[in-house]
Design a protein around this nucleic acid. Structure first.
Lengths: 340, 340
DNA sequence: TTAATACATGGAATCGATTCCATTAAACGA
DNA sequence: TCGTTTAATGGAATCGATTCCATGTATTAA
């Protein structure tokens, strides 16, 4: 393979001049430009990316970590990230954890040995480990759609509170007043999914809706759970049925709808049911489902924007406005990653 | 970040000794080992991968090109490739073409600028371009599950001839004698899918089965095509219906089965239908389908084995035997990539 | 005791591109 | 005409790890 030295020799100039030519520096005469280009063409020269990386101390590589790419949610996320990063001349290195924290460790080590300039984590196994890396490499670690356990790592997530509120208000404008609320966590305790529950509480308070304790369900996760909820509602509600059900997941929603329909209760005519797609398998499900969709590519773009801004110090032009993001319920949480 | 020089200084030894220690060379005294390790621990040193790559002229990175990772077939392929390559200390750089040959060009350029040691192409847009790279970088380009147009590039594909023969013989042992054959190409001309057609022809000749020209269908690709075939068979076959149908794709098979069942013909009781999964969406389809499955991870392993053997000169231990591969109908076609 | 190995080690040269520094030539202002 | 910018250029130093070479010491063989 040809090197810059050989080009310089063949063109009869110094290596410095060749380098300046390659990098569009000023002060290269038209005369030499031609000679250099001729030498490059003749020897089919391409600069070694490795050498450039070593000298410039930057790789233009970004690592992306997901648990499984076979999961369409992550595939879509990766796709959006790759598209955006390619626009800025960055290359993406994806790795899968398969829920193994050793793989996560290997992935993060790429920050240490300078294989990547930064990382986007769409999946985290060992929160302590990630945190230590985020502190050692501030500005280089971004969480995406992942619980920000210590709140001191830069992250981009769906604004669950706002998204839930939007969905509930939508149901309200449709005339619904009798709500059932289903959560995967705990209704009262600040556990996973609490911001959705908080939104529900604020919503009912704001509209002065009464909450029937029998219509609050906790620790529900599966389609079977959904079916049970439906049977429970039908059995216990002698006089009135609810007219809207908010669930924490699409699985639960599907089970619910299935069981309701078996009992000749029409969805959404008699009861509106809304799902929540943590994983967007819902798109492929048999039952068309109203669900709170995660704005995957908006989130990906946001994460990339933040990371590139950190790395280059320059604002990356957004191709989506902040207003769009807000409407879609996507917000970002920028915090300094700790002391440098 | 600490460098090897700083480690050498702190440990009171030469850089050569540190390097030898790091690379497990002999001739480093126990005394210095301890000192060096202490310095490494104290400064939290990790060797720069970039510097190592420059000096050793090898990156331990392999590029993988697919059209879309959101396609589960490619996601599975990538997964298998990554698992295998990680075992040998290689890192994977995936890129998606999205059917754009400019993206393919950018991907292949990574060979030129030494970002990757080799590439696996599971998708090709511009055959001429790929060929020129395969010739410029012999041993470094492997086709995977892609038509090997010029037959002079190393490639791994399903042995369609054998797989088809196996499937037909299976039907034969089940007692079927009246076959319908559906192809996406042309029955007589050597076009895409011809090796399957060849297998069918050899099969019928071997067992001296007569072929009804009305039971040969060409240029069929969609589920709608499948339905048409079913209607056609029912209408025209006054006296006898076939008892087995071999199709070139799962889409066609699904349409066929659907239409047959609508006409009260039971599958597989009355007629056996066999599909072919070029893309494994069949696994998620509503109708359980007998299909010729592509041995994805076996193909991926084979491709990686060949590539690593090319690169290192060493035989990579197979974790699947060749016998297994044959049974699964997977074969490889090793050809020299041209003159160096 | 001497010669021949084996064991250990430091450090210069190297991989290939970038950048700073020194130098020279041309253009410009007064 | 002379001093001062501006334009062009070559090449050494640099990024950080590896490897070869030279040198030195300890061990073994004869």
């Amino acid at each position: 393979m040809a090197t810059i030295k050989e080009i310089a020799k063949k063109a009869g100039v110094g290596v410095g001049t060749v380098s300046r030519y390659l990098n569009d520096h000023p002060y290269v005469s038209e005369d030499k430009r031609k000679k250099i280009q001729a030498a490059i063409d003749e020897l089919d020269y391409t600069p070694s990316a490795i050498a450039t990386q070593l000298r410039s101390q930057s790789t233009k590589n970004i690592g992306v970590l997901v648990s499984r790419l076979a999961n369409p949610f992550f595939a879509e996320l990766f796709d959006a990230i790759e598209r955006k990063l390619n626009l800025y001349g960055y290359q993406v290195l994806v790795s899968q954890t398969h829920d193994d924290s050793a793989a996560e460790q290997r992935f993060l080590d790429q920050l240490k040995n300078h294989q990547v300039d930064g990382v986007i984590l769409a999946s985290v196994e060992n929160h302590e480990l990630v945190r230590s890396f985020a502190q050692a490499y501030p500005q280089k670690v971004i969480l995406l759609n992942e619980e920000n356990k210590y709140r001191d790592i830069q992250s981009v997530t769906l604004n669950h509170y706002q998204a839930t509120l939007d969905a509930l208000n939508y149901l309200f404008t449709q005339g619904h007043r009798h709500f059932v609320y289903v959560t995967g966590g705990n209704y009262t305790v600040k556990s996973h999914g609490y911001s959705r529950t908080k939104a529900f509480q604020d919503f009912t308070k704001q509209h002065q809706l009464s909450i029937d304790p029998d219509w609050l369900f906790s620790q529900k996760h599966t389609a079977t759970d959904g079916q049970e909820i439906a049977r429970n509602l039908i059995k216990n509600s002698k006089n009135t049925l609810p007219d809207a059900i908010f669930t924490n997941s699409d699985e639960v929603a599907i089970g619910l709808i299935d069981e309701l329909q078996k009992n000749n209760i029409s969805v959404p005519k008699d009861i509106a049911v809304i799902g929540y797609d943590d994983q967007p398998f819902a798109r492929f499900a048999a039952v068309p489902l109203t669900t709170i969709r995660q704005p995957i590519s908006a989130m990906a773009n946001k994460a990339v924007n933040i990371l590139l801004k950190n790395l280059t110090g320059q604002d990356v032009p957004e191709n989506i406005t902040n207003e769009d993001l807000k409407l879609k319920g996507c917000s970002s949480n920028q915090v300094d990653g700790g002391s440098s």
